[in-house]
Write a protein that binds this DNA or RNA. Structure first.
Lengths: 230, 230
DNA sequence: CGTGCTATTATGTATGCACATAATAAAATT
DNA sequence: AATTTTATTATGTGCATACATAATAGCACG
């Protein structure tokens, strides 16, 4: 068999769900039944169903069985764009220009968010990311220099802070927030739009074992969109 | 024993990745080695590693082995908010008010997007979603009445179009787009903000077996954010 | 020296089995 | 009738085994 069972079974089940064979919120046959129907082991069906469950298409409960989820498209996976790749995927040449780069005491909002004690300084960076020498996005970042003192010696003019951190700091956890904000004067001039323009912003904060590493906010040029298909 | 192996192994591996035990882009021991290290079957390690791979933390290649992914937080899963639940989770009372509800010929941009032939009409809906009688979000929607003619008789004043569709139309595929836009006069007055305010917009288009069902755009009140943790 | 065949290796997947666990239904008890 | 106990059932998980598949490394041969 060239076809991979649990994938094809998953596809088949998805099709049957989409065709309305099983009503929204309705019960799907038990694993064992499906297994004999498809002529495979229960484990294979289990795997397919678990994948559908993870994708949010079905809900499973012990003894309760598997039922089609009421709300479609409840969750979507998004690729968080990596600037360089994004620019280069359009055939553009990536570059960046550092506007600010110095140790400062973070404002209270940042400080509490990052659980940095008062009075401690952190590295503040402002960067404009360029596509073919034209502004593409504006980045504001704080780096915890207590956690990553080496960054003070990093050649940030050659490699972006993001890329340096990614290459240097071991893998870490983090969170992401999307929002829309009006460009203020600084942002507008940095990315070359009008003041007040609606900007898509991505905040990303990164931790390493409970220690704060960096937080950044990316302001995208107008018209930026994030896509996800289901 | 009480702990579920493949979950705990996944956690353990995650920890070891985050601790830097294996360098970014570096190789992780083979499944068989990890299996004997953890004292479990290879299949169990396999499952843990596949989960990490799906989460974008490691990259796996046959014969090549498993290596820690270069870019962290490349993908994030977002829960697409369901308005009613969202409102009610804050303890608010959900409601909605229909502003427009009639058959119209969609503008070209919508028509091509939806692959609707020219001249055909579709149901155009504008709805304000309320939290405690105050505007919360504004929705603009087109429904393909050829695919779902029953919607013309639906009690849309009682149940929102979204909920009606979800309950009526079998499961379908779709895509989601996030963007930021400036509120025009209509949007601003609908959700009670100033013209020009930065609005977080979610576009959602839904299909059923290649047949277009509906497309909608949701305009959120200022300050709306979408979170995701990793 | 390069080309093409042949191991070798790590992951991908399926199977059959066993048992664990949660939730329900049925039965027994108070 | 209300409550507790005891099956029953569907999913969750693990294991050992077997084979498939992709990518690589090594070797032989022209």
């Amino acid at each position: 068999m060239t076809s991979i069972s649990h994938h094809s079974i998953r596809q088949s089940l998805l099709g049957r769900i989409q065709s309305g064979e099983w009503a929204l919120g309705g019960l799907i046959p038990a694993e064992t039944d499906l297994a004999s129907e498809y002529g495979c082991a229960r484990g294979t069906v289990n795997r397919a169903l678990q994948a559908l469950a993870e994708a949010g298409l079905v809900v499973r409960k012990r003894k309760g069985g598997t039922r089609v989820c009421q709300m479609p498209v409840r969750q979507a996976k998004f690729e968080i764009p990596v600037l360089r790749e994004q620019v280069e995927s359009f055939g553009g040449i990536y570059g960046h220009r550092i506007i600010a780069n110095k140790l400062k005491t973070p404002p209270p909002s940042i400080r509490t968010h990052l659980r940095i004690p008062g009075g401690v300084k952190a590295l503040h960076l402002q960067t404009v990311h360029l596509a073919d020498d034209k502004p593409y996005a504006f980045e504001e970042r704080w780096v915890n220099t207590q956690a990553v003192p080496e960054i003070l010696n990093a050649p940030l003019d050659k490699i972006s802070a993001n890329e340096w951190l990614v290459k240097t700091v071991p893998f870490s956890s983090g969170d992401v927030v999307f929002s829309a904000i009006n460009a203020d004067k600084k942002i507008a001039s940095a990315i070359g739009t009008d003041e007040g323009a609606a900007i898509f912003a991505i905040d990303r904060t990164t931790w390493l074992e409970d220690e704060f590493i960096t937080t950044m906010r990316l302001y995208y040029k107008e018209g930026f969109q994030l896509h996800s298909h289901l």
